[in-house]
């Protein structure tokens, strides 16, 4: 498969009154049709600057971006409008515009001087609104929609622009989790069904790792890493990029986990789903569950309906039916001597 976009020795950043501020140096990489690529990285790593440069909104400080072998610096806005469509974080604040009307602006690169729509344009607009799942809101005013619905309107706009490339900047930022998943699935489906090249700048690590065909990982003061998400996991690249206090990359699940500081340990007996949940709840409260019978206290996970946990030591024993009451009990004990 041939790359649709080639990025060669790209340096991005800003030039302001003679001063140059380099954000990222010497980026090299290819983007392929039919692939969903996610650009990840901590705040300030240059994700948005990269996107703006790829869109042609700002000139690169050095290097080239080629689409089908042609440098975008040689193209006009009109040329680019038929190759790249964007969904940005810019707030749309237009009163009295219907969903259909706003989506129809996506046809602008193909319409004439007054923007008159042909019957074919109207069919495409309808299809795009349908494919993002808001056909029932076609005639609604955009100002009456939720943030998530507005985002879908802008994605429909990008779809009717009918370009081989779509760039999205934080498309899921305002969405709840089900909508985020739905959106990513929609975008992934688009890449496989239509062969579009889709690139998303996102903060949603978990989703990106599960849905993306490729990851571009930007970090402060390190070269960009590009690859299939699982490869990057195998190569242990993630942990380095987001190394922060309180965050650990769990290689087994391929997900980031919150690292809790544990002050004390309790022995546990039992397995299964209840164990996982109990472990998580205790961990959040600074208690590490371990399998070490030499410890003073033990929690026994029973498989019985109304006595889920038995919490005991040599002298006493308690039965609890939920985690809340168990936690209350644990916290009420005097733990001074058990800090190891």
């Amino acid at each position: 498969m041939n790359a649709l976009i080639n990025i060669k020795h790209l340096t991005i950043g800003y030039k302001n009154s003679g001063k140059t501020k380099v954000i990222y140096n010497n980026i090299n990489g290819d983007l392929f049709p039919g692939e969903l690529t996610c650009v990840l990285g901590p705040n300030g790593a240059g994700k948005s600057t990269l996107l703006r440069t790829l869109c042609g909104f700002q000139a690169p400080l050095d290097g080239d971006i080629l689409i089908n072998g042609h440098a975008i610096s040689d193209m006009t806005n009109a040329d680019l409008s038929k190759l790249i469509s964007v969904v940005l974080t810019d707030k749309i604040n237009i009163q009295n515009i219907t969903v259909e009307e706003l989506v129809s602006y996506g046809r602008s690169p193909y319409t004439g001087y007054f923007g008159r729509l042909s019957d074919e344009d109207k069919i495409l607009i309808n299809e795009a609104i349908e494919s993002v799942g808001i056909i029932d809101k076609k005639d609604r005013l955009v100002q009456t929609l939720s943030d998530g619905e507005r985002q879908k309107v802008m994605i429909a706009k990008a779809l009717v622009q009918d370009t081989p490339i779509i760039f999205l900047d934080e498309p899921a930022a305002f969405l709840d989790l089900p909508s985020k998943v739905e959106l990513m699935q929609l975008l992934h489906k688009l890449t496989t069904d239509t062969g579009k090249l889709i690139l998303i700048v996102t903060h949603d690590l978990d989703l990106a790792l599960q849905m993306a065909d490729k990851i571009w990982l930007l970090g402060n003061d390190r070269p960009i890493s590009i690859g299939v998400p699982e490869d990057l996991i195998i190569q242990e690249i993630f942990s380095g990029f987001f190394d922060r206090e309180g965050l650990v990359f769990d290689k087994r699940s391929g997900l980031f986990k919150i690292k809790n500081k544990h002050k004390l340990k309790i022995n546990v007996e039992g397995h299964g789903f209840i164990y996982t949940l109990l472990r998580r709840a205790l961990s959040r409260n600074g208690i590490d569950l371990v399998r070490d019978s030499s410890l003073e206290y033990t929690i026994l996970i029973n498989k019985e309906e109304d006595k889920l946990f038995t919490f005991y030591n040599k002298e006493e024993s308690f039965i609890f039916n939920d985690i809340q009451s168990l936690l209350t009990k644990i916290k009420s004990l005097n733990w001074i001597h058990n800090d190891k």
Binding site: D90, Y105, S108, P109, G115
Partner: peptide, 25 residues
């Protein structure tokens, strides 16, 4: 001024979106 209606419509979306839709800002 009627020749400017398409540009005016697209400029409502903000400069970035307008540019992406082919408007010479």
């Amino acid at each position: 001024s009627f020749l400017l209606v398409k540009r005016l419509n697209l400029l409502m979306l903000g400069e970035n979106y307008a540019r992406n839709l082919g408007v010479n800002i």
